[in-house]
Structure formats: C-alpha cells, structure tokens
Design a binder for these strands. Structure first.
Lengths: 212, 212
DNA sequence: AGAGGTTTCAAACGTACGTTTAAAACAAAG
DNA sequence: CTTTGTTTTAAACGTACGTTTGAAACCTCT
C-alpha cells in the first residue's frame, strides 16, 4: 500500500519536522534519523535540502491543484453564474477532506503554507508563484463573476485577506486550541473552526464596497 | 536626538535584518556588521541571540501596549457602549501611525509579528503570551460589549481570524504590492490597504452568528 | 594624573551544519 | 557466477555559526 522507498520516507519525515520546527531549524540529520535512512540519502535522492523542501510542497500542491482544476473545468458554461459559497465550499472540501486522517494531513499543510509565506525561502516562493499562479487567477475570475458588484482589484485584496485568516488561524491551530480550551472550556475541532471561519470570510467578501 | 549607543544600533540593525530574512537565517555576524559594532557586542549587551530577539519585540510592543492601555483606561464608564469601529480605529491609529516614517516602522513590525507566529521561537511566543495576554483579554471584553449578539467564544475566534488577515496581508505587503501593480497597474499604499482591510474585518465581526 | 569600572576589540573555541566521497551492499541481467 | 549499474553506508570535509576570552581602549571620578 504505502510505498516505503527511501524518497517517500524522507518526504514523510521532512514534512512532519518542517511543520513542527520550520525549515532552517530542521537539520538533515534529524530528518534522516526520523526516516531511518542514511544521512547522505537526501543529497542522493533530491540533490539538496532546498530541493527536498520544494518536493514536500509539490507533493501537496500538485494533487490539490489538479483536483481544483478538474472541479472548475466541469463547471462548463455555468462559470458565469457560480455562487461565492460554492467556490469556497469547493476549496474547503478539497483542502480539508473528510476523514480525520485527511484532516490531520490538511493541518500539516496549512502549517507548511504559513511557513512558506514567512520564512524567507525565496526559491520556494517563486517556485509556488510560477507553478500555481494561473490557477489562482482563474479562481479570481470566478470570484469576480460571483460578486459582480465588487471590482476586481478589491477582490484581489479580499482574497488575500481571506487567505490570511485561514492560513494564520489553521497554522497555529494547536496553540489556539489550547487557549480556547483553558479560557472557555470548549474543545475545538478543525471542522468547527472551519464552520466558524467560513461565515467570517463570506461576510468579508460581501462587505459593501465604498470607493475611496 | 537618536541615541547611538551600541545597544540601540544593534536593535535597529537586528529588527531590519530579522524582518528581511527571519531569525534563524540572520547571523550575529551580519547584525553586528550592519550595526558597525564588534561581533561580541550582542552577547555583551543582551546575553544571547534569543535575548536580542525578545528585546526587539519588547521595544515595539511595550510602547504600543502602554498606549493602548491608556486609551482604554480613559474610556471610563463608557466602556459598556463602545463601538466596534472605534475599537478597531484605535488599534489602527496606534499600530500604524500617521507619518510615512511611522508607517515604515509599522510595516517592519507586522513582518516581525508574522515571523513570531510562524517561526518556531517558542521562547518568543511564551514571552509575548505572558506579557500581553491580559491586555488582549481586556480588549476582547470590549469587543463583547460592542457586539453583544455574538457569543464570547465566537468573538475569540473572529479576533484571531481578523488578526490573521491583518498580519498575513501586511507582512507580505511588499510582494503583494508588486503583484497588484503588474496585474492591475494600481499602486497600493499602506493606507489604502488598511482602508480596504477595515471593512473586510468589520463585516467579518458582524457576520450573522449561527450556532451549530 | 591615576585608579577603577565599563565597553570594545581581535582572535579563538567548540559545535553543528550541508555536502562529498569512496567503499560496501545490493539488485538485475548475461 | 560474474558483471554492471544502482543504492546505502560510515566517515570525513569545509564552512559557518553562537559564544567566550583576555587584553586593549575608553570613561569617570578623586
């Protein structure tokens, strides 16, 4: 079932450790130890640590990007009259999944995404930018269809605001969970947070637009 | 006017370099070189690199926290009937300032704040948590007063969503500015982005609350 | 001017990193 | 079994890091 070749073991170990500690803070020695392989394996299979980082992201983003493209393609001629809730719902469904195993994977990815934004991995940022920008633009066009009363430049900004809410919230999900539990005695699951996140973002997108 | 003792020079250089490259990626050698002081100065004046990082944040957050506390104190008995817009306006005014020099400083700080959230600087996170959590709680109470129809647990979450939008947007402000300019030909100033950010966040806070 | 405390300095220390190497182990094909 | 190409291994390499050191330079008093 699960491949257990060295490269896969390395990716598994690396994504976990990167998410927990950051890129610069995670050493190849820790990764290879956790993966149970030799130290030299990273350089043999990927070439360098940078290449390993990119490979970790690619393993997440390529399937996601393909699935989203497929969903958007199958809209056909309904592209013009798609609703905001449908668009965001598709994103959530693809990114978060259903099973608790998928959700755990999703949390890991959000953590990684947050890191990618903040840690100064320029190679990674340009890698992602080049590879997935077209899809983002297409999504933005659909957003414009869904909210014709808001200009495109404003929607561009608001999509960044929304992305910020999501990534920021979910990447620090663990610690927020703790605080929430000790302050309000309320256990918070990922599904619950997303259920709260969606109305917030939807309301933000639908905010009345006032030109300045 | 401006102090030019070694410690200040170090803080100035460090905050710039940290913001540009992250904590782990910035070496004491780079910092001391940029500050024009000896390599040993950091350990002499601050004790360690970790302590320097904390000092950078403290220099930002202490004045901000005091100013905010002062503003809230002077509310007196009007605390009960304060408006959401007023609360957020105070935050913006204190955090961003008026002059372009203040705004540049503010952008630097937002970048640092983003780093603090994502880079695994546990010492820094607990330092901030302990030092400024009470003020955050107080602010949350005022939020509850301003939005009595939304339960406290929900407002706790929504304040995190909002914080995410703000920090995420402003910490990557530079690169977003570039994309926006080349895609829409529209130059974006910090003030303009904040003018757009506020309605988004306000709408999010005011989103109709539906219990699950 | 000189004593005492503080700050700076060049140099070095020990450690940990990413990467390389060359030999060993392994796998597949003749 | 031998050969050929691939993968794994232990060890080492070179570099860069944070930190420490002890002497020099600089103050600030009397």
């Amino acid at each position: 079932m699960t491949q257990h070749d060295t490269a896969t073991k390395l990716l598994d170990a690396a994504e976990k450790l990167f998410a927990a500690q950051g890129f610069a803070e995670t050493t190849l020695r820790t990764i290879t130890k956790q993966a149970g392989v030799n130290l030299a394996a990273v350089n043999y299979h990927f070439g360098s640590k940078e290449a390993l980082i990119q490979a970790v992201f690619q393993r997440y983003l390529d399937p996601f990007s393909e699935a989203l493209t497929r969903q958007l393609n199958q809209l056909g001629e309904h592209e013009e009259k798609v609703a905001l809730e449908w668009l965001l719902g598709v994103l959530v469904a693809l990114a978060v999944g259903n099973s608790s195993k998928e959700q755990q994977k999703a949390l890991l990815f959000f953590r990684l995404a947050g890191l990618a934004y903040t840690q100064s991995q320029d190679h990674l940022r340009s890698f992602i930018q080049e590879r997935y920008a077209p899809l983002f633009k297409r999504f933005l066009t659909l957003l414009c269809n869904a909210l014709p009363e808001v200009p495109a430049t404003e929607l561009f900004l608001r999509s960044h605001f929304a992305l910020g809410s999501v990534i920021f919230t979910l990447q620090g999900f663990g610690s927020m969970q703790q605080i929430s539990e000790q302050d309000f005695g309320q256990p918070l699951g990922l599904t619950q947070v997303i259920e709260r996140l969606l109305p917030f973002v939807v309301a933000g997108f639908r905010a009345p637009y006032a030109a300045s």
